[in-house]
């Protein structure tokens, strides 16, 4: 347990009468993809919100590299190495791919209160940004405005932005959503190589991708973890079949 990069311990979150998160405990270990699945309304988004810092849990603890980050803001968590992508693409559409990624690089290099040096000549920003873009195989699109990219390419940019943080853990919220089979396959391949460097907590609807990528799977239903295990264990788990796979 001590080697876990990201740990959730007994998280609870309640909205009025709705228990959106009930005693959720899970961890993410180096080199793995840990998939979090669950039917609509299972509380996945609430849980992601708590991990990323948009929502404060009522109880429980979130730890990144054994440090408690439960009380930190979104930006502080990002600086400590929690990279994330969004279910709905959240990039600045009018800016180029490079500009989007550069903002993430400038955050990890310290504060942004530098008023004089132009960023478009700042190799210490551009080089790491280009490297992150190259890792997502998007170098040929680096100077293209995000608005001109395909849906799949935007997903790749999102991941590149997260990578630019030199993250210790990646939180990817439905990266395959809206991708065609081809784009989905490409991203799957990219994530497969990526996980060796950065462990990934993957929230995903695409079951083919989950069963291909995930080392472990956690199933969330009504805010609660109902099953946890390898892909094979999850496939045959009676409660999962009943609640989720619709058998």
């Amino acid at each position: 347990m001590s080697e876990a990069v990201l740990e959730l311990r007994n998280l609870h979150k309640r909205f009025g009468a709705l228990q959106a998160t009930r005693d959720v405990t899970l961890d993410l270990r180096p080199g793995e993809i840990h998939a979090l699945i669950g039917p609509n309304g299972a509380g996945k988004s609430t849980l992601i919100g708590q991990i990323a810092g948009h929502i404060a849990p009522d109880e429980g603890q979130i730890r990144l590299s054994a440090e408690d980050i439960t009380g930190l803001s979104v930006a502080e968590r990002a600086r400590r190495g929690l990279g994330r992508s969004f279910q709905v693409s959240s990039l600045a559409d009018s800016l180029s791919v490079l500009r989007n990624v550069m903002v993430a690089v400038q955050a990890i290099q310290g504060h942004s209160f530098r008023f004089w040096k132009p960023v478009d000549r700042d190799a210490s920003l551009i080089e790491p940004a280009r490297a992150a873009i190259a890792r997502m195989q998007l170098s040929s699109r680096a100077d293209t405005p995000v608005s001109e990219l395909s849906h799949g390419e935007r997903r790749q940019v999102e991941v590149a932005c997260a990578l630019a943080l030199n993250p210790r853990a990646l939180l990817l919220d439905e990266p395959m959503a809206g991708l065609g089979p081809e784009g989905s396959l490409k991203l799957t391949e990219l994530l497969e190589t990526l996980k060796l460097e950065v462990p990934i907590l993957l929230i995903e609807h695409d079951m083919d991708a989950v069963f291909r990528l995930a080392d472990r799977v956690t199933v969330l239903v009504s805010g609660e973890v109902i099953a946890h295990g390898t892909c094979d264990e999850i496939r045959t788990h009676p409660r999962v079949r009943e609640a989720y796979l619709g058998d």
């Binding site: 930006a75 990002a78 959240s90 600045a92 993430a104 955050a107």
Partner: peptide, 15 residues
């Protein structure tokens, strides 16, 4: 980035 997409900025680690 704060003007275009505040969430992106925070996610990139800048308040």
């Amino acid at each position: 980035m704060a003007r275009l997409n505040e969430t992106r900025l925070a996610t990139a680690g800048i308040s």
